[in-house]
């Protein structure tokens, strides 16, 4: 009888504790959402779908869409980035808006990272909120952290699909019209990389990265390679 009482007390205590944890998480999310609103993040970032469907709308875009940030980013990276934003797209969010048209070749004009750096506390709260913004159709657990043929993946990345033509695969080489990939492993959720590679137009119908027709096996190889770039 005595042990039953102790067990019940323990269960009640555990429930009390878990309720506290849940409440504190939702409080951070709530604060984060309020910050996103007060700092007017939505004036540059799209915080809700659907994505832009016309080129005219894409050209008005000032910053990347965030309405699937919780599927796309790694939480630890996001919290650090929000405290000290850096350039992830060498030519800005929409490269076309930032090129200087030269006589013989184009150059990238003046592009700057997001000027809205947050404190550590704010960054934590905003991250908690952003991580709740998910792409409902994305499958989790597709890309597992195990051995893969890096040599085969590199042939796909460099020669067959020409990824480095538009993305920087090293800090000082690769294309500049799309996000850098040499640090993608720190930044991106591997399952999101796979989902995006399979159909970039699902996330952004007018994005200048066309869909490739590859087997799931090849998409997995590419996703694993990109997730390993750190």
């Amino acid at each position: 009888m005595k042990s039953l009482k102790i067990l019940i007390s323990l269960i009640v205590f555990a429930l009390f504790l878990s309720a506290g944890v849940v409440n504190s998480v939702s409080a951070d999310e709530k604060e984060g959402k309020a910050l996103v609103e007060s700092k007017k993040c939505g004036s540059c970032h799209k915080m809700q779908g659907p994505p832009d469907k016309t080129i005219a709308d894409v050209l008005k875009r000032k910053a990347p869409d965030l309405f699937y940030a919780g599927s796309k980013f790694k939480k630890e990276w996001l919290e650090g980035f929000l405290q000290k934003p850096t350039m992830l797209r060498p030519a800005g969010t929409v490269y076309l808006n930032n090129i200087k048209m030269g006589e013989k070749k184009d150059e990238i004009g003046d592009v700057k990272p997001c000027a809205s750096a947050l404190s550590q506390k704010e960054a934590h709260e905003v991250t908690e909120y952003l991580m709740t913004l998910k792409e409902p159709t994305m499958k989790a657990g597709v890309i597992v952290d195990d051995k893969f043929s890096k040599a085969k993946a590199k042939v796909l990345f460099g020669q067959k699909e020409g990824c480095s033509g538009c993305h920087r695969d090293k800090a000082d080489s690769g294309g500049t019209s799309c996000p850098t990939l040499y640090n993608a492993g720190e930044r991106l959720n591997p399952d999101w990389i796979f989902d995006f590679l399979k159909n970039p137009q699902k996330y952004d119908p007018k994005i200048w990265m066309p869909r490739r027709e590859l087997s799931d096996e090849d998409f997995i190889l590419l996703a694993k390679l990109i997730a390993s770039m750190k």
Binding site: I99, M101, G102, K105, D106, C166, G175, T176, S177
Partner: peptide, 13 residues
């Protein structure tokens, strides 16, 4: 992005 704003092959990539 590749062919350039003049179309002459001088894109940023």
């Amino acid at each position: 992005q590749c062919h350039g704003s003049k179309g002459n092959g001088g894109g940023i990539n």
